[in-house]
Design a protein around this nucleic acid. Structure first.
Length: 284
DNA sequence: TTCCAGGACCCTG
DNA sequence: CAGGGTCATGGA
């Protein structure tokens, strides 16, 4: 099944291969990834995105939602580029979008991100999917269902190479499998949802904000990590020894309702070595 | 060999 | 509360 989405200024490279998603790979000029129980191949054209569902099924609406096609991107850019620091990153990172991925998958993925490298996270998620997901077509695997991860022992989950994060993943999967916890967050303000998320074993302030930003479309939330702190210090001259909630307020004070978008641009630029001083680190 | 990676937990003071 | 050790794993 093929779909075409008319959209301007959408960079698949910067979006699908960024630090928000872990299951996309570049194949020539196209990008292949697993979304839900389907395998999707996306290609950019001058007029928009050509999406080919090569295995499994997914509705056009869900694809559109996942890719955030209906986002008022020009408005986002207009607001965040009022800050000269962000405006400068737009030259290199224009077309970067924030996706709307599944809360459960984002929760587990970012729990796995603790003290981990993006390269390893991608590998570990792939391994979990291969071991405990369902095969889709030829050697593609869905993200393992919560009931399955919840049923693993700490020893078993080590086979995926997740290390000390295994117990956190199992615990979170149990919560998701046994309750409507993730759905209930939709009814909460971001701050309340943040507090709920940090109540989970293995979920701290930063990971909670990753889930809110990348799965719940809370575009004002800023995941404050080591990179964000470097940006605070080097770009904005802000003291980053304060507690997390103060830094969150500070970041939102600068960029308001699109603070998450703004700092994502800064994060990607910093990680690519285009923003901060010092040696450019290549992370792929 | 040592250090680090999109941190969080736990124990001390 | 603030500070430091610890936690698996793989790549540089």
């Amino acid at each position: 099944m093929k779909h075409f989405f008319q959209v301007k200024n959408y960079s698949l490279e910067r979006t699908l291969l960024s630090g928000q998603a872990f299951r996309w790979n570049k194949l020539g000029s196209k990008y292949v990834g697993v979304v839900g129980n389907s395998v999707v191949k996306v290609e950019g054209t001058p007029a928009g995105l050509s999406v080919d569902v090569i295995e499994g099924e997914i509705s056009r609406d869900l694809l559109s939602h996942y890719l955030a096609i209906d986002e008022d991107y020009e408005k986002v850019l207009a607001e965040i580029s009022e800050d000269i620091n962000v405006k400068k990153t737009l030259e290199d990172f224009s077309g970067y979008r924030i996706l709307r991925q599944e809360p459960y998958e984002m929760l587990i993925s970012f729990i796995d991100s603790a003290n981990n490298s993006i390269r390893n996270i991608r590998g570990q998620i792939e391994k979990m999917s291969k071991l405990w997901g369902e095969e889709i077509g030829d050697s593609y695997y869905s993200f393992p269902r919560p009931e399955v991860l919840a049923g693993l022992t700490e020893k078993e989950i080590m086979k995926a190479g997740v290390g000390f994060r295994g117990k956190y993943i199992i615990s979170a999967a149990k919560c998701v499998a046994d309750s409507n916890f993730l759905d209930s967050l939709n009814d909460l303000e971001s701050q309340a949802a943040h507090e709920e998320l940090t109540g989970l074993y293995g979920v701290g302030d930063k990971i909670a904000d990753c889930v809110l930003l990348f799965a719940y479309n809370r575009l004002e939330r800023v995941p404050i990590d080591v990179w964000t702190k470097r940006i605070f210090g080097q770009i904005y001259g802000i003291d980053c020894s304060t507690k997390y909630s103060e830094q969150q307020s500070c970041a939102q004070g600068i960029h308001k309702k699109y603070a998450g978008y703004a700092f994502s641009f800064l994060f990607e630029a910093a990680r690519a070595g285009n923003l901060l001083g010092g040696s450019p680190e290549e992370n792929f």
